[in-house]
């Protein structure tokens, strides 16, 4: 019944302005009650899921398919804290470094200024580690330094995630009081934090990679 033949007309695009927050009748806020969203997701699933329309007309089945995929897509985007933050910023028209260039490029380009010195030193060490690996040598001191750097950046990573959550509160407060200047400022700080988070995550992986060799 739901084979390809049913999709004979293009899927209806979601109504203008129907973002993932509005799917759950939520304002564009970040510190969300996930338990409530989960309950709403289950409730709405019961209403629109294709299993409820297995023997309905082709139009109703198509409607159900569209509604359910929109619901699932929205839930997927809002469930994960980082995905949710990125989604909201894109909705607000903020370009994330990830969107502007490939991951590797922004890694090189947007070194967060406060990390410059550390990253410079780390890159030297990484390079040395890779050279050693190529030569089949192992420098225990270098390995210890890198392990320490790894722990250091992992700690930073956790700190960045905490900082993003702090910004959620500021964004939400500014939204509730309709202070667009504060909203913009919070959004920009979050965008910077997300870029930094991605950057640090790649660093941690680079170190892991070098240590693994």
């Amino acid at each position: 019944m739901t084979n390809g033949d049913d999709v004979s007309t293009p899927p209806q695009s979601a109504p203008q302005g129907a973002d993932y927050f509005s799917v759950f009748s939520l304002p564009r806020l970040l510190d969300l009650d996930m338990k409530a969203i989960e309950r709403a997701f289950y409730r709405r699933s019961r209403e629109v899921h294709p299993d409820r329309f297995a023997q309905a007309s082709a139009e109703k089945q198509q409607w159900s398919l569209e509604q359910t995929s929109l619901l699932n897509d929205a839930y997927r985007a809002l469930k994960d804290p980082i995905a949710r933050t990125e989604y909201l910023l894109r909705l607000e028209g903020i370009t994330l470094a990830e969107d502007a260039a490939t991951a590797d490029r922004q890694e090189k380009k947007n070194v967060p200024p406060e990390l410059l010195a550390e990253v410079f030193e780390l890159n030297m060490q990484l390079e040395e580690m890779r050279m050693n690996a190529q030569m089949g040598e192992d420098d225990p001191q270098l390995r210890r330094d890198l392990e320490q750097a790894q722990a250091e950046f992992a700690g930073q990573f956790a700190g960045i995630e905490a900082a993003i959550r702090t910004e959620w509160g500021k964004w939400d407060a500014a939204s509730n009081s309709d202070n667009s200047a504060d909203k913009q400022a919070a959004a920009e700080r979050m965008a910077a934090l997300l870029d930094k988070r991605r950057y640090v995550r790649n660093l941690v992986r680079d170190v892991q990679q070098a240590l693994g060799n």
Binding site: P11, P50, L65, T68, S69, L70, N72, D73, Y75, R76
Partner: peptide
Amino acid sequence: NSTIPASE
């Protein structure tokens, strides 16, 4: 592991 139906 995305819940289906899913679209992108």
